[in-house]
Every structure is written in structure tokens, then in C-alpha cells.
Design a protein around this nucleic acid. Structure first.
Lengths: 189, 189
DNA sequence: GTCTATAGGATGATAGAC
DNA sequence: GTCTATCATCCTATAGAC
């Protein structure tokens, strides 16, 4: 996938690189879509693990949200093909299996929970954990990611013009949902 | 592309639907990539035309920025396959030709110019037309679009959970770059 | 500008021997 | 769990007649 794009995955080529024949692979995966599903699940688990490590290193609140978001973007930059599979769904006809998809929805719940904790800590207004606010945060991360993958996929996190906007983008959100009367941070970029 | 995904385009199938044979199409387009390039150029021109109509109906400033952004998202919702080709670049090995790409960069210049006009009108701080601020605005639109295309591609603009965030997302930006001492709008969503 | 014929591949998937 | 053989189908692209 990394060499030919997400759509470039084929049973034959995977088998070839495993040193076996195409038909042999069907003993392990019943179809090409099953390969995609396994990759989807693997990418999801790997990104979640990476994000959790970052979350555990920070106390609840906006700093933890910043750390988790940055870690997710860093993971995507390091795994662009998997990131496309997870966040763009570019394979026609492929939908992750119900079990795999269920794991994906945990992400949203985790994000909402972290937002609630930041609200409880007095760092954000209560609306910051509403449905639309949670979606807005995913929009910000998805936007940073999409612009990076589409325009500067080979750049590192540090040198990417869009990846460097991860924190400024989050600041838009945090400033907007800052508790009334609180400080309005100036743009950092 | 609409039926099989952007990667599903083939010379043979296009020819088939034109009622001619595959090889005949090579008299008009020298390769499959040339077909993609023509579609890229067509999609770009069509979206730009659509946005310009919206811009002309509003005086310079944040209202015009809102109108133009909303029009772009609406265009993408109505043309999901072309939007993916333009904003995701999912075809391995395909890069738009220099002429086509040049037209694409006009978009950024247009956006920056509209931001400058909003600054001149006193509706945004001067930093709102900096490089990073322009990129931030593209991140917001790209995020709305990506989340819609990946998660709710068949929904209309009005019923999409993410498309409805177009204006709230812009408000994050406008609030952040609001002139100092100006009003800080409450979230609309 | 269209056609036929063809080169020279690729693919997903199945059957059945070992 | 691996293999060979095979099916059925698709593709991009070129050559050359008309």
C-alpha cells in the first residue's frame, strides 16, 4: 500500500512478498477485503495504543487533549497508507467488519470523555463536550491530516506546513470554548 | 468514478460508455493519466466557477468568506468523486500537469486575497492573512469535507452531521482572529 | 477518427494433488 | 498449508486497415 497507494494492495503481491503463491494466502485470508479488514484493525489498534501512551503521560485537561491529538497526527505521518485506509476509506466496496468498526467508535467515546474531563477541570465550557463540538475537534484533526497526506505526504511532522498547525488548530477550538472571562490566547503561529 | 471510486476509472470503460472501442479513445487522450488530468482540470474549473458566483453575491469580508466556503463544500457534496480527485489525490502515480496545477494554486491566492479584504474591512486582525492562517482555513474546509466524504458521503449538505459544521468551523477561525476588543460570538451549533 | 487484432500483462478466486 | 493448474476477466497500449 505504501508503494502503490491503498488501492494497490493485491492478494498476489502480498503472497509474492511472503514467498508463497497466491492461492496459498487464501488459507489465511478468505478474500482481498479480509486483508483490508485485518489492516484496518491493525492500524486502528496501533494508533489507539500510540495515543493512549501519550494520554497517560498527561493529567486530564486540554494538555492531555493536545498530547493525544499530536500523537495521532504523528502516527498518521509515520503510517500514511494505514492512515488513508482508516480516515479516508478509499477502497470501493470495502467497509470494515462490524467488530472492527465497533473498535473505531470507541475513539469517539474516548475523545468525548477527555473533553468532559477538561470541562470538569474548568478548562473548557460545558458545550465543549456536545456532539457537534466533538465532531468539530475531529474535523480539525482530519483537516490537518488530509492536507498533509494530500499535499506533503513525504514531509516529516516537524517540517510539514500542515502538521505544524496541529496545535494552532487545537487552539482555535480551546479559545472558542474557553470558560467565559478566561484569557484569549494569541495565535502561536 | 462515482460508481467504482476514483481508482475505478479505466480507458476501456469510458470508451464503452461513449459507444466506441477502447483504442479509439487514444486518439483523444494519450493515456489514462491524461483522462485523470482532464477530469482534475474540469473539476477545478467547475468548483472555481461555482465559488466565484457565491463570492460575487456578497460584499468583501467575512460574509463573503462564509459564502464562498459554503459553496465549495456544497460543490464537493454534489461532486464527491471529483472532490476526492481534487482534494485527496488518491490515484497512485498521478500528478496534475503543471498547467492544471497552476490553476489549482490560484485558489490559495484567491483565498488569501479575500482574507486581506476582510482584514481591510476591519473584520479580522491582520494576522488572518498570514501564510499559516490561510493554511488553517484550508485545514478547516478540508476537515469538514474529509469527514463528510469518509463517513456520510451519501448525505445531503443539509442532513450531513459534518457539512452542517461548515459555519461553526469558520466561526472558530473568525472568533480567533476577531479584532481585539471585538465581540466573541457564542457557538452557534 | 473509427475499427480489428493483438501484445503482454495483471487480477481474484477455485479445484484438487500432496 | 503449500503447491500447480486453471478459469474468467480485466487492463493499458500499439499497429495498421479503412
Amino acid at each position: 500500500m505504501g508503494e502503490l497507494g491503498v488501492g494497490g494492495l493485491s492478494v498476489s503481491e502480498v503472497a509474492r512478498r511472503l514467498g508463497i503463491r497466491g492461492p496459498s494466502l487464501y488459507k489465511h485470508f478468505p478474500s482481498l477485503h479480509a486483508l483490508y479488514d485485518a489492516l484496518f484493525a491493525r492500524g486502528l489498534a496501533d494508533s489507539q495504543r500510540s495515543v493512549h501512551v501519550a494520554l497517560d503521560q498527561h493529567p486530564p485537561g486540554v494538555d492531555r487533549l493536545r498530547a493525544g491529538s499530536e500523537r495521532l497526527i504523528r502516527w498518521a505521518v509515520a503510517n500514511p497508507a494505514l492512515a488513508q485506509l482508516l480516515f479516508w476509506r478509499p477502497v470501493p466496496g470495502f467497509e470494515p467488519s462490524p467488530e472492527t468498526f465497533a473498535a473505531s467508535e470507541q475513539d469517539m467515546q474516548l475523545l468525548r470523555q477527555q473533553l468532559r474531563l477538561a470541562v470538569s477541570a474548568g478548562e473548557l465550557r460545558s458545550e465543549a463536550s456536545d456532539d457537534d463540538a466533538v465532531r468539530l475537534l475531529t474535523v480539525l484533526m482530519s483537516g490537518v491530516l488530509s492536507q498533509h497526506l494530500a499535499n506533503q505526504p513525504t514531509r516529516s511532522y516537524e517540517s510539514g506546513d500542515f502538521t505544524r498547525l496541529t496545535r494552532p488548530a487545537l487552539d482555535l477550538f480551546f479559545t472558542f470554548y474557553a470558560p467565559t472571562g478566561g484569557p484569549h490566547a494569541a495565535p502561536e503561529h
